[in-house]
Nucleic acid binder design. Structure first.
Length: 109
DNA sequence: ATTCTGACGTGGG
DNA sequence: CCCCACGCCAGAA
């Protein structure tokens, strides 16, 4: 087993709870973990999420609904394709109707 | 040990 | 809405 820090593990846990066809933001996860303000750590944690197929990192975007982390996926627009595959409309790396699709673990969970 | 970076967020202009 | 500056803190060199 890898030496996962509790923080990383919790990030992955929340990420797996993201419903199909919905998205959330790094800050929302960070806040849910009680690490509000440390949203960057969530993004960094996702960097290691590539080793976890169960973690839909493509459903995690920044607060603007922008696919800022698409460059970390394979190819150039894999992240967008995955999102569109779930019925999410993405134009120019920007999720349409982001406010409606946004899933907040603090409120929803 | 120090220094820099980073898949972010918030506040002010 | 945009842009700029600061804070956040774990990991890498």
């Amino acid at each position: 087993m890898s030496k996962n820090t509790g923080f990383f593990e919790k990030v992955y846990e929340v990420a797996r709870l993201i419903p199909y066809g919905r998205v959330t933001s790094y800050g929302a996860i960070a806040k849910y973990l009680g690490a509000a303000g440390s949203a960057r750590m969530v993004g960094w944690a996702m960097n290691g999420a590539g080793k976890f197929p169960d973690v839909p990192a493509h459903r995690v975007v920044n607060r603007k609904g922008l696919l800022t982390g698409k460059h970390h996926f394979e190819g150039t627009n894999l992240m967008q394709q995955l999102l569109e595959s779930e019925g999410i409309v993405v134009i120019e790396n920007q999720i349409q109707e982001f406010d409606t699709l946004h899933w907040d673990p603090v409120s929803e969970l």
